[in-house]
Amino acid sequence: MSDPIPAVQARSLSKHYGEGNTYVLALKEATFQIAPGEVVALLGPSGSGKSTLLTILGLINPPDTGWLQVGGVDVIRDGAAVGDANLIRRRNLGFVFQRSNLIPFLTAEENVRLVLELDDVPRREAVHRTREILESLGVADRASHLPMQLSGGQQQRVAIARALVHEPSLLLADEPTASLDKELGRRVMELLRTAAIERGAAVLIVTHDHRALDLVDRTFEIEDGVLDTEGAKVHGATL
């Protein structure tokens, strides 16, 4: 049986900022791959290049050089975007942030359904899938509430639902537990992991929180733009 196609595969991604005296190489030849359902933590001090890698993977900032494939499709080739970045983000990428970043004028249900409707999923199907994921994350009873009417934990669950409802190949999570207490942070990590496994999404979590590392499959470490994946150990995550 052949290996499954990696959810995300990157080769030689590099990115610099500034020129001359201000020249900084923020990411150097990053090469890695993450399998569907795999959860990877990206660790590193501030200014190490975590955000640069995240914005490249999120197709927000293009790299200078390199190649990136998401869900088996080339999205960056020789440092240049291939295809419609918006379309790829709508279909293949999910985002979870430190704060929930829900749209304040939409209800919890609408925040989640929006992602499907942006991709022209028929309304009936969008409503069904939204209800399903909200139920699976235990916030279906808060569906008609606005974000400001939800607790921090509920908001983060809705944000996870939004990130996964369209079944992306890659979920990028930027410090998703930073604003939560230890217990809630761990529950969010568990939710992320469960949802990723169930939906076959690769998850890359940027975090400083070492307390939940037992819930990830691998860790990547980055420092001065150099991504270390070779030495990363497999944690043998359990739920």
Binding site: G58, I60, N101, I103, L114, V115, L118
Partner: peptide, 14 residues
Amino acid sequence: KIHSIALLKLLGAR
């Protein structure tokens, strides 16, 4: 609502 607009862009809204 500029933050929401930035978020919509990130989510891939046309």
